[in-house]
Simulated assay, not measured.
Amino acid sequence: MDLEIALSPSELSKDCFVPLPPRVVRDIKESFLVLKVTTRSGNVFFAGWTGGSAASNGVLEMPLHFAQCQNIRAKEIVHVRAVPSSTVASRAIVSSSAEDWDVVLLNARLLEDIILSQIRVIFASMALPIFLGNGSKIVLHVTELEPDIGPNDCLILNGGSEIAIAPPKSRSPSTKKKDGTNDRLPASFRGRVLPSETAAPSSVQMNERTASHNHLQCKDLLYLTPVDSSSGK
C-alpha cells in the first residue's frame, strides 16, 4: 500500500517503531510486524510495528529522528508492505561517532536495558538513533550483521541477539581532556569483550590505569547483550 509520511515530534516518539493507519490496524491480528518501506526513488528501509495507530488514515507515522536517519521527509509517498520476520540476528556490530562513544561508555548498562524497547528491526548500513533516559541521543551505524544479509533484507533483534559497539576510528584532539576523564569506563560497566579480529579496525584512546581496572586489553571490542525488558528478567 502507498502511504504518505507523517513525522512525529521527537518529544513524543523516542524509538524506531512506526504506527500504521487505523483502518489497517483494525485488521491486524499480530502484535508485531516487520515493514519494508520503499521510496519512489527506490531506496529501501525496514521498520517495526508494535501496535501503534497513526493519527489518520493514509499516513505512515515515523519518529522524527528515525526518519532523518533514513533520509525520509514529511509528506513523502512510500510503498509499505509487511514481510516475514522469522530470521533473528545472532550478532550485530555497530559503530558510533567519537562524541557518542563517550556517552556509550557512561551508559553501557542503560543501553542494555533499553535497546529492545526502541529498536527490533535491523538492516545493513542502518543508522539508528537511541534515546537515553537522561534526554540525550546517540546514533549508531550498523557495520556488520550475522547472519549476513543482502541490502533488501533485514533481521530481528531479541533478547538473545548480541550487539557489539565498536570504538570510533579516531577521536578529535579537541575532545580529549588533560586529566583523561573522557576515556574512563564506569566501574559498573558490564559489557563483554569480543576478540578484535571479529570487528573492523578502529581504536579509542584510554589511559592504562582505566583499561587495567576494567580488565581491557589493546584491540578489545566492547560487547553489549540487549535485555528484553518484557521478559521480566
Rank of each mutant, 00 (worst) to 15 (best):
A89E: 13
S90H: 10
S90P: 01
S90I: 04
A92L: 13
A92I: 14
I93T: 13
I93D: 10
S95K: 12
S95L: 11
S97G: 15
A98Y: 15
D102P: 08
D102C: 12
D102S: 12
V103Y: 02
V103E: 00
V103W: 00
V104Q: 00
V104R: 04
L105R: 06
L105P: 01
R109G: 15
R109Q: 15
E112K: 03
I114L: 12
I115H: 08
L116D: 03
L116T: 03
L116N: 02
S117T: 09
I119Q: 14
I119R: 14
I119P: 03
R120V: 08
I122Q: 12
I122K: 09
I122C: 12
M126D: 04
A127C: 15
A127Y: 10
L128E: 00
L128Q: 03
L128W: 06
P129K: 02
I130W: 03
I130V: 05
I130Q: 02
F131Y: 04
F131D: 00
F131H: 07
L132E: 11
G133K: 10
S136E: 12
K137I: 13
V139W: 04
T143H: 01
L145T: 01
L145S: 00
L145F: 00
L145N: 04
E146H: 15
P147N: 09
D148K: 11
I149T: 09
I149C: 08
I149A: 05
N152M: 14
N152C: 10
N152S: 14
D153L: 10
D153T: 13
D153W: 10
L155P: 08
I156F: 02
L157Y: 11
L157G: 11
N158H: 15
G159T: 02
G159D: 06
G159M: 01
G160A: 04
I163L: 15
A164M: 08
I165K: 03
A166V: 07
P167F: 05
P167G: 07
P168H: 05
P168K: 00
K169Q: 03
K169L: 00
S170W: 07
R171G: 09
R171F: 07
S172Y: 08
P173A: 04
P173D: 02
S174N: 08
S174F: 06
S174E: 13
K176R: 15
K176N: 10
K177A: 12
K178W: 06
D179Q: 05
D179T: 06
T181G: 07
N182K: 09
D183A: 14
D183Y: 11
D183R: 09
R184W: 02
R184E: 05
A187E: 09
S188N: 05
S188T: 05
F189K: 05
G191A: 14
R192I: 02
R192V: 02
L194D: 01
P195C: 01
S196M: 05
S196L: 08
S196G: 15
E197T: 06
T198L: 14
T198P: 08
A199E: 09
S202H: 00
S203G: 14
V204L: 07
Q205I: 11
N207L: 06
N207S: 07
N207H: 10
N207I: 10
R209S: 13
R209M: 14
T210R: 00
A211L: 11
A211W: 08
H213Q: 14
N214K: 13
H215T: 12
H215P: 05
